[in-house]
């Protein structure tokens, strides 16, 4: 029998992490789709509607030099951006949403933001399948550089997980956090080159885009899927460093704040 002493550190839980996280992800997924008559179809409809809308506006209304790839280029940005905004918002509210569990069950608190991001990954997967199918049908088809894609998405997931950990903990202390995230997501929609190409951005503003990991990801996905070449090494390394650092920061912030959850929920 193992002895536990609760001093400054507490909460020893010797359960099965993988089983627990899998169950939490499954719960999220089942709960969401059982309440929708069209189920997974909604996950596909949303980016398609956005793609159609943006294509209409920027090829018919603000008619720009027409780019045959415009709809594909938009979709390359919408898929990672949608995932990013949803996973961040949902992840950040995961501790508050599971308040009753956190006050009642000595389960490690980190599992809630992690499971929340992972369940959004299932939606990401559905949208990736949509994106790749459309690229295969209308775009340039498969090339060897597609092998970079899992790494790119993996880094984005790591980055979002870091954000979700940090912000889910902050959200317990400052409930306004949610609005900060929502506003940031609106800003992000315009600051990620969704409906304009990176080449269009004046050089003096490019710095803003280069420190933005979502923009970097969009850029690299277009490199691979539309232009058919490998992502730029320097951009990739920068994204990797930022993602790993964000994940580390998230874990650190979370572990610093988690002892105060009980009193504040």
């Amino acid at each position: 029998m193992d002895s536990q002493t609760f001093g400054s550190d507490y909460l020893v839980w010797n359960g099965d992490y993988i089983f627990l996280i899998r169950n939490l992800v499954e719960k999220d997924f089942k709960v969401r789709y059982r309440n929708m008559s069209l189920g997974v179809l909604w996950s596909l409809l949303n980016p398609l509607i956005m793609m159609g809308l943006l294509t209409f506006i920027f090829t018919k209304i603000f008619a720009q030099p027409s780019d045959r790839n415009f709809p594909l280029s938009v979709l390359c940005a919408l898929v990672p951006l949608n995932f990013f905004t949803l996973a961040w918002v949902n992840g950040a509210s995961s501790i508050l949403e599971n308040a009753t569990l956190i006050k009642r069950v000595p389960v490690p608190r980190q599992v809630f933001p992690v499971a929340s991001v992972l369940s959004n990954c299932l939606h990401l997967l559905i949208q990736i399948v949509l994106l790749l199918t459309i690229i295969l049908v209308f775009g340039r088809g498969v090339n060897i550089h597609w092998l970079w894609l899992p790494l790119l998405w993996g880094l984005e997931i790591l980055f979002v997980m870091g954000l979700a950990l940090a912000f889910s903990a902050l959200n317990v202390y400052v409930r306004d956090t949610r609005y900060v995230i929502e506003s940031t997501n609106i800003v992000l929609f315009w600051l990620v080159p969704v409906f304009y190409s990176f080449a269009l951005i004046p050089v003096r503003f490019r710095g803003i885009y280069q420190i933005n990991p979502v923009a970097a990801l969009v850029l690299m996905m277009r490199n691979v899927l539309l232009e058919g070449h490998a992502p730029l090494g320097s951009t990739l390394i920068r994204l990797a460093i930022v993602s790993v650092a964000m994940f580390g920061t998230g874990l650190f912030v979370f572990s610093k704040l988690k002892n105060g959850f009980y009193a504040r929920l």
Partner: peptide
């Protein structure tokens, strides 16, 4: 073990179900 004590010590042997 849901919340740590501010002073003193809590010692528990074994697995707890609340």
């Amino acid at each position: 073990g849901l919340t740590p004590p501010d002073e003193g010590k809590v010692v528990v042997n074994g697995r707890i179900a609340a």
